[in-house]
Design a protein around this nucleic acid. Structure first.
Length: 276
DNA sequence: AACGATCCCTGTTGGC
DNA sequence: TGCCAACAGGGATCGT
């Protein structure tokens, strides 16, 4: 499922192809995929005729500023995928939004579970939507250990839940949160405020390498809902996971058995032997 | 304010 | 073998 590394892999794949091109039209096949607009047509109207100035990312959001102060925003949800195609290419099932660019080429949003979405926002709307909802990017703008300590101070929620909270840190999802906690040797159910400075430092140090490894291996793929790179390759990071999905298997670090517990309704995998 | 539960959605999985 | 309930999860929303 697309977390920060998968979204960044998508960004890097699309950027050289779509930046500088003008959006000629857009088609919304699943109205639900357009969020924060009164009508799906409002999204279409807002993006049509504008040129893509860049392709950026914040957390799991892809941001494409367009000429005329509108930003095309895309979130992949949990099963979303963006691909480049030529008009006439066979469409994958669940192709829910198609952006037609000059060329002509198409950007297709395929998303079976429709948890993803697109929107087109003004700078004010973007600011309003992100303020209080999306924190600093976990890869490009990682907060210092001191800043993290301030975020965690006094918090009673499990550190796992806080890592998933996009306001604390933007970009982590269930898989990478578990991997980061394993690398940092911290149990997921520990109250955020119970972490001492050394543990917070270890947690912070674990974030970069885990995300970089995910990015290096092309993202994580899970079964048939596999995250697919835009050109169709599957990532091989799944086989390299240390904790996620490995309940009952031996820990690669200490040989202990990986446990599965449910935190905030989400599966959490951790090692009883080396996470404290 | 912080926290936890619930809901949305559909393809896959696992148990009988 | 076949069927169906359970499961997966990011983010919005709501109740406490």
């Amino acid at each position: 499922m697309p977390e920060l590394p998968e979204v960044e892999a998508t960004r890097r794949h699309l950027e050289p192809v779509i930046v500088g091109r003008t959006i000629e039209s857009a088609a919304v096949r699943r109205p639900r995929m357009v969020r924060r607009h009164e009508r799906p047509e409002d999204f279409v109207d807002r993006v049509t005729g504008r040129r893509i100035e860049s392709l950026d990312r914040r957390g799991k959001f892809l941001l494409a500023p367009l000429t005329g102060d509108i930003t095309w925003v895309t979130h992949l949800g949990m099963s979303g995928r963006l691909s480049i195609a030529l008009p006439g290419d066979e469409e994958a099932p669940h192709t829910n939004v198609v952006i037609h660019l000059e060329g002509p080429i198409e950007v297709r949003l395929v998303d079976p579970r429709t948890f993803g979405f697109v929107a087109a926002w003004t700078p004010d709307e973007l600011e309003t939507m992100f303020r209080g909802r999306v924190g600093q990017d976990a890869l490009q703008d990682l907060p210092s250990a001191r800043e993290l300590a301030q975020e965690l101070a006094g918090r009673t929620a499990p550190i796992k839940a806080l890592l998933l909270d996009q306001r604390v840190l933007a970009g982590l999802g269930n898989i990478y949160a578990d991997e980061i906690l394993h690398r940092a040797a911290i149990r997921p159910e520990r109250p955020g405020g119970s972490l001492d400075p050394a543990e917070i430092a270890a947690l912070r140090r674990a974030i970069g390498p885990v995300l970089a490894a995910g990015l290096r291996h092309g993202g994580t793929s899970l079964g048939d809902l596999a995250y697919l790179l835009p050109d169709g390759r599957t990532g091989d990071f799944l086989q390299r996971l240390a904790a996620y999905g490995r309940a009952g298997e031996p820990c690669r670090r200490c040989g202990g058995i990986i446990q599965r517990t449910v935190i905030r309704g989400r599966s959490s995998f951790w090692c009883r032997g080396c996470q404290f």
